[in-house]
Design a protein around this nucleic acid. Structure first.
Lengths: 363, 363
DNA sequence: ATTAGCACTTGGGCTTTGTGAGTGCTAAAA
DNA sequence: TTTTAGCACTCACAAAGCCCAAGTGCTAAT
């Protein structure tokens, strides 16, 4: 993974890098002459041609057709990115801006992710993505039921991760505050701390028993809990700045673009894709490294957002394979970093509390 | 509005209709010969040509260039749609399917709209839209505060429309259940039934006064209420099935498509557009009838969703100007109808309750 | 090992030409 | 007066041909 030296001479590396970068902001095949002019190479175009021929043989470059310049192959990009990941340094001048924007909108994780993806999109000019990964095991921490009117009540659930979810429940018979209170207590005893798959018939029957006359409340309530749990488990995917894609000629093939958009809307494939290849730090997924055929000339850069060690979301960027990796990597890392800092501040706050409480001898 | 006879002879109408329909599913200019073959006209192509020339002069047809077939102009579509609106009949066989799908997902209005737009998109093969219009005046009906841990609490708000909103609030100092209870009571007294613009400094100061030691809770709480209120007021716009657009050649101009996507993501323009031209029943907005330049070769069909007389959302479809109006109108109407029925059932339920309660002499 | 020079390849942009669909008009038929 | 047949005319679009620039690979000289 961290192996950056594939046995390429320094000059080859230099040339490869130059080609990738040139192609990133031209979009067209790049020739030997161009490289000579735009880098400080101390050799002739012929030499570069020779090197390029070798690089092609090694699989890092591709010729669209004889007598065109070279284009980086997937392996070429991969090499470039890998060596880049170790290089790029966090530059701090933009961090302030990010922080401000994020703080203003901070609260629920959903919102943070959304803002972050928007931010990523506008800063990089590619399409931003925000993902809430499939969480395999949410449990409930606390229930609270609130009467709205005689046949509606609101159910507030606080999950193990601290997220708050609300649902409005409609029932056909009248309910009283008292009944609701009993149901609430019951749920807090029986349904807290267990996963969606643990809500079995015996539990439901016990609840109905306990509720006696008001047993008609149990079914809708439990169904609602179950819905919310699977909803949270489900994973979610959002895009921002789709229009950016259109700017790049690789997406001018309407046919293919349509397919891509379709895939994006399906969500599932992308979701799996990202969930699977999720590492601790920034990941770059180039072209057909992904099993999704449509993504062939695209690349996906993403980074998990962690909170107290748990991955609570993923933010990233989707763009053409020839995207400006340097900039994108930097941006995603910065945004991710800013969010981490935010979380950290919050945690320190909590820890401070706890310590304080400790030395005070408890509340 | 309901004037369907613009002084066109029966034959002209027939020809116009044939042209519109032919163009809808061909996408290309249609000529006199084609019409002759695909309709049961008892005249020659020459006659049709003459009629077409007249129709063109009257503004219903347009010639992309000399010696190409005719294409319906905006007015042509408008005529077609207007005469169609009075014709199309609700066919009921698909309604069942719609109902099932909607019922399964029914609960919050947001979800209903979302599902409806998805449904519209997949049934028509155009892009579905769901809009929550800007609601100028929400008020709160009830507050409930729930302690999560010593510096987080959840704030549950029930709005005047019955929607439930939740926010997690973080504060820097410790809070007790007792303090929270007091705050809750205070908010229920002071903040219920007033709009976002009525939350003024005097009120906040009074609250801080009443809370005494725990006045630090007031600011975050009020800010949170305010946020939710403006969020609800804001209006929202969601698209589904964008990929469908790509299927139609009018969107193959990448340049323009990009602009369109951009506009869609801005939301505001479209939101205003729809809000302004919102009538009680289905509306059709064709091309430059809208002030948004980008929409020139597009059309928007939408219908408000009402609940107890209030417009709570809009669903519709966005597609090329030459969309299949007959099908789209039918579909949107059906979906809208199904939702209305759902709401109605719910209302009848409530009314039944009330009556029952009445005859019982109240609880 | 590098370089200069040259012959060779090839896609894209340019004009040219041909073709077919479709029109408008006129004169004859109904 | 309305409809029809016939014909000349107009264009967009596709195919064909042509030229050019960019870029390569190879060879021979440095």
């Amino acid at each position: 993974m961290a192996n950056d030296n594939y046995g390429l001479s320094e000059r080859k590396k230099q040339i490869l890098k130059a080609i990738v970068e040139a192609h990133i902001d031209g979009g067209e095949p790049v020739g030997s002459k161009y490289i000579l002019q735009n880098t400080l190479m101390s050799c002739s175009s012929a030499t570069i041609r020779n090197e390029m021929a070798e690089l092609e043989q090694m699989g890092y470059l591709v010729q669209p057709h004889t007598s065109a310049g070279r284009v980086p192959s997937e392996a070429g990009y991969r090499f470039y990115v890998d060596s880049l990941v170790e290089q790029y340094a966090r530059t701090t001048h933009e961090v302030v801006k990010i922080n401000q924007l994020l703080k203003a909108k901070m609260s629920e994780i959903d919102q943070i992710l959304d803002t972050a993806s928007r931010l990523a999109s506008s800063m990089t000019n590619y399409t931003g993505i925000a993902i809430k990964p499939k969480a395999s095991s949410v449990t409930m921490q606390k229930f609270e039921l609130i009467l709205i009117d005689s046949n509606h009540f609101a159910m507030v659930m606080i999950t193990s991760t601290g997220t708050v979810k609300t649902k409005k429940v409609t029932v056909t018979s009248d309910i009283t505050d008292d009944e609701l209170q009993r149901l609430s207590e019951l749920m807090n005893v029986l349904l807290c701390g267990i996963g969606a798959d643990m809500i079995t018939l015996p539990i439901i029957m016990e609840m109905e028993n306990e509720m006696g006359d008001a047993s008609f409340l149990v079914n809708p309530a439990v169904k609602c809990v179950w819905e919310v749990m699977s909803e949270i488990d489900g994973g979610q995917l959002k895009f921002t700045g789709l229009n950016h894609l259109l700017k790049y000629p690789e997406y001018s093939d309407t046919q293919q673009l349509g397919q891509l958009l379709g895939t994006l809307e399906e969500q599932d494939e992308i979701l799996d894709l990202v969930s699977e290849s999720l590492e601790d730090d920034i990941s770059v997924l180039i072209g057909s490294e992904s099993p999704v055929k449509v993504m062939n000339n695209s690349a996906l850069v993403f980074k998990p957002i962690k909170k107290n060690g748990r991955t609570v979301g993923v933010i990233g960027v989707l763009g053409p394979r020839r995207m400006n990796y340097r900039q994108v990597l930097k941006t995603i890392d910065e945004i991710g970093g800013s969010i981490a800092v935010m979380f950290d501040e919050e945690r320190q706050l909590n820890q401070g509390k706890i310590k304080e409480g400790d030395s005070d001898g408890g509340k």
